[in-house]
Design a protein around this nucleic acid. Structure first.
Length: 420
DNA sequence: TCTGGGGTCCTAGGACCC
DNA sequence: TCTGGGGTCCTAGGACCC
């Protein structure tokens, strides 16, 4: 039976979030920048029309920004995450089982919910209501597999006649559209694979769909083989509405300005560890493996050691245990005279806190109540209200974020004000 | 001068064991 | 001294996504 797999995707998500609270920016060019205001990570349609590419560095587009009076925002993830939850909750009113694929996309399956001929109308209803309730414009793609639904979604945005909903369930319609769909735009085909395929004369989704499975596997392993099947309407990538817990947690940042001292490096790592531990506790997980790393400025090759690994004898979620290792790591890694550009922490070997095996012979040093109190206070009064006394007081490594909008929906002192 | 951050999955290759 | 192969587990790195 042909399934009605749907993907809903917020249009220019970060830009649209900013516009919800600045309605005067509708139809005006808007850009949202990456951390440190380094490059463009979201562009409104007006900006795309100016030819500014995804990831374009600020210093290269400064002139265009001025000339066209583009509104630039630093990224405001507290706001985006909250709007994302609102969109998801609105969507659940229409279909309870959704797969949250990213901050601005969800998959869902309408097969057992509606007859195929009713699906397109329902998608329009969902779309209209999310726009009314949350203020977020969206696009919806519908097809028998996730890969084809992503293609439909792409077409829904590009071709105005679809009004942001494209249904490729019908094989003839589908054939007509994938004939002209470039492989670069297929979900799962990156630059490398696209180049490889083009060299072999394959340039469109339809051409890739024709590839024999054996050949696909040989060329791009099981990943490409699956993709070819998906293009032919055979579902290989299943919907996952009950995801497992995370496999890894990362906190890393490029510095707002170059860092040369051990203290600054240590301060940044401690900060990242505290954030990572917070995330860990929030997801009710504990970690076995800790990785701390530093990066020097590009082309700086005299840096010998970048990584510090540690395996906890008993999985933990205790911020204070991490900090001990930061001291050790900085001692190991720091080299004077290096211009450091970035640091980070990666937690892997994650398991549910309730499944942690204690070791009889190791004293359990985790201070649950302390950590609980820490999280509650910081949640209520703002990040880093309470932190460890060993966190050095200095901000040299922090991000540049000059154009950040208020966190309208998550911080009481940043609420929007209505004018009478 | 200035180019993000947080994820997932897959493969190859090394270490080790029998 | 030289001689095998199969299995597992782990890690680093690649490719990709948003």
């Amino acid at each position: 039976m042909t399934r009605s797999i749907c993907i809903i995707d917020c249009n220019n998500f970060f830009c649209s979030c900013e516009r919800i609270f600045r309605p005067e920016l509708k139809n005006k060019p808007v850009i949202v920048m990456s951390n440190n205001d380094g490059c463009a990570v979201a562009r409104s349609n007006e900006v795309k029309d100016l030819g500014i590419k995804m990831g374009a560095p600020m210093f290269k587009i400064k002139d265009l920004v001025q000339r066209h009076n583009i509104h630039v925002f630093s990224s405001n993830f507290a706001l985006y995450q909250d709007i994302s939850c609102r969109v998801q909750n609105a969507l659940r009113d229409f279909i309870p089982n959704i797969e949250i694929y990213s901050i601005d996309e969800c998959f869902f399956d309408l097969t057992d919910f509606l007859p195929p001929e009713a699906v397109t109308d329902y998608a329009h209803t969902i779309q209209k209501n999310i726009l009314n309730w949350v203020g977020m414009p969206t696009s919806i793609g519908i097809a028998p597999t996730k890969t084809l639904a992503k293609i439909a979604n792409h077409i829904a945005k590009e071709q105005p006649s679809f009004k942001y909903v494209c249904n490729l369930s019908d094989p003839q319609t589908r054939q007509r559209y994938i004939k002209h769909f470039p492989i670069e735009n297929i979900w799962g085909i990156g630059q490398r694979s696209a180049h490889k395929l083009r060299l072999r004369g394959i340039g469109t989704a339809a051409e890739l769909a024709q590839m024999p499975l054996k050949r696909a596997r040989q060329l791009g392993s099981v990943v490409l083989e699956r993709l070819v099947m998906e293009l032919n309407g055979i579902a290989c990538i299943t919907l996952n509405t009950q995801p497992d817990h995370k496999q890894s947690i990362t906190v890393s940042r490029s510095f707002g300005q170059p860092v040369y001292t051990k203290n600054d490096l240590e301060a940044s790592l401690i900060h990242h560890c505290l954030r990572a531990a917070e995330k860990l506790r929030h997801q009710k997980l504990a970690v076995k493996h800790l990785l701390l790393y530093v990066r020097s400025h590009k082309h700086h090759t005299t840096l010998k050691k970048h990584h510090y690994h540690y395996e906890f004898p008993v999985a933990t979620d205790d911020s204070l245990q991490f900090i001990t290792h930061v001291k050790q790591a900085t001692k190991n890694l720091f080299q004077p005279g290096i211009r450091y550009a970035k640091s980070g922490v990666v937690l892997t070997g994650l398991l549910l806190k309730k499944d942690v095996m204690n070791d009889l012979f190791i004293e359990n040093k985790t201070s649950h109540h302390l950590m609980q109190a820490l999280d509650q206070i910081n949640k209520k009064f703002g990040a880093e209200t309470i932190t460890s006394a060993s966190v050095p007081h200095n901000n040299r490594w922090r991000m540049r974020q000059d154009k950040k909008s208020p966190r309208y929906t998550t911080h009481l002192d940043e609420l929007p004000t209505a004018q009478a």
